[in-house]
Design a binder for these strands. Structure first.
Lengths: 223, 223
DNA sequence: GGATTTAGTGGACGATTGTCCATTTTTAAT
DNA sequence: ATTAAAAATGGACAATCGTCCACTAAATCC
């Protein structure tokens, strides 16, 4: 037991963070006021100052929480992926496009914070951290693919593949933001794998990653 | 002459719109208040209500103006492009990544509005319109490429290419938003052309569009 | 169970928000 | 030069913002 004291304390902190994220998702940052937050959390006005020292710090904590949540979800998915780098890339791509990660709530929150990131240093940092960790995971996988293939153009291809994959995922998120109803997850994944198949025909096809041992056939199969 | 009356009137309207965009670019939407706007424009408090009927309408007009400006710039570039669809695509890609279009100011403004788009219908519309017109221009070009190539899989390839190109451009903009200093326009263009070369090897290479008459050689040159 | 400590409350506060209008200034028409 | 019309001003206004603190409620300790 952590003691009812501290238990409640933490519970209320989380309630405040959750209320901020709900409000940002539904009403946007500019309409997320202290009154709005405490009403959603069902707590009293003073709690924000008590637990976070002010509204700005609370919003920052909410951005941090959202960022962590995204990465944790993605990393959990990665645990279930196979060992081969192409399988890991596929898992990241499909995970980033999955309902659990790419949904109206998350997209609203993410773009709302992004819009303010340029002027709020602290928030920009979390936005950057999330992207940085994702970039690291993807780059590792491509670096392994390039290394195992033994081609000389090592660093360039892996970097381009990382850059392109991230850009495509970003673009798909924007697509979802603007048209959540007509967004097609399968189509989005197919387009990304088309790009990857072009760069690593022995490792990817239009359908996704090629498991080790299928290289020869798959390289031809790609149209 | 439009009469000094109306001339001043229009001049002040533009000053207000410009002040909003400057403020949004520098301070963000949440800090763009009426006081901030009129101070930048050097006009009196009442002007906003007089010319636009309220702050919301002014912000909306500013979003509209920014959207038009972007598209006009891109269309002007298109006038100077060659007739072949691959040259038009190259011009759009290079134009969208050019300093005139992709710079700190425009990116700040664009993402600030995007962040609020979900909750401000009118702004979302302009965001959508801009993307829609761009989508149309790109799709037209790819549709021509597919048609001229005479492959049967017509609609699918053109749609995928359009979708992928737009997503990549979007991703590059986000890249610039987060890291304006270390952004490399050439690298961004190269990655997009890598994608296009994969889809249309007879029409694109890593360096960009292939002019008509070079098809045979270029298709092999791609590594 | 009384004392002590900490969590939680909610209203007061000054600052700032956007709107609106009575007034002044400027341009155009006579 | 005088009048009519429109543009522009800037302060008054209520509403809302976020902060803070005197206070109450509740959990922990002895």
């Amino acid at each position: 037991m952590a003691g009812k004291r501290e238990q409640n304390r933490e519970q209320n902190r989380q309630a405040l963070i959750g209320a901020v994220l709900d409000s940002v998702a539904e009403k946007g940052i500019s309409e997320t006021s202290v009154s709005e937050i405490i009403q959603r959390a069902g707590l009293s006005r003073g709690m924000i100052h008590l637990h976070f020292g002010g509204k700005d710090n609370l919003v920052q904590a909410a951005a941090h929480h959202s960022s962590e949540e995204y990465y944790d979800g993605l990393e959990a998915l990665l645990q279930t992926a196979g060992d081969s780098p192409q399988e890991r890339v596929e898992m990241i791509v499909r995970g980033d496009l999955s309902k659990r990660v790419l949904n109206r709530r998350n997209v609203s929150i993410w773009y709302a914070f992004r819009g303010e990131a340029r002027n709020r240093t602290a928030i920009a940092e979390y936005s950057d951290t999330r992207d940085g960790r994702l970039r690291g995971m993807i780059h590792n996988a491509f670096a392994r693919i390039v290394r195992e293939a033994g081609t000389p153009d090592a660093s360039g291809a892996a970097r381009d593949a990382t850059h392109g994959t991230l850009a495509l995922l970003e673009g798909m998120w924007t697509d979802f933001l603007l048209h959540p109803d007509r967004f097609d997850r399968e189509e989005a994944a197919r387009i990304i794998f088309r790009f990857l198949a072009a760069m690593f025909p022995a490792h990817f096809s239009l359908a996704g990653a090629i498991r080790p041992g299928q290289e020869a056939r798959a390289a031809k199969a790609a149209p």
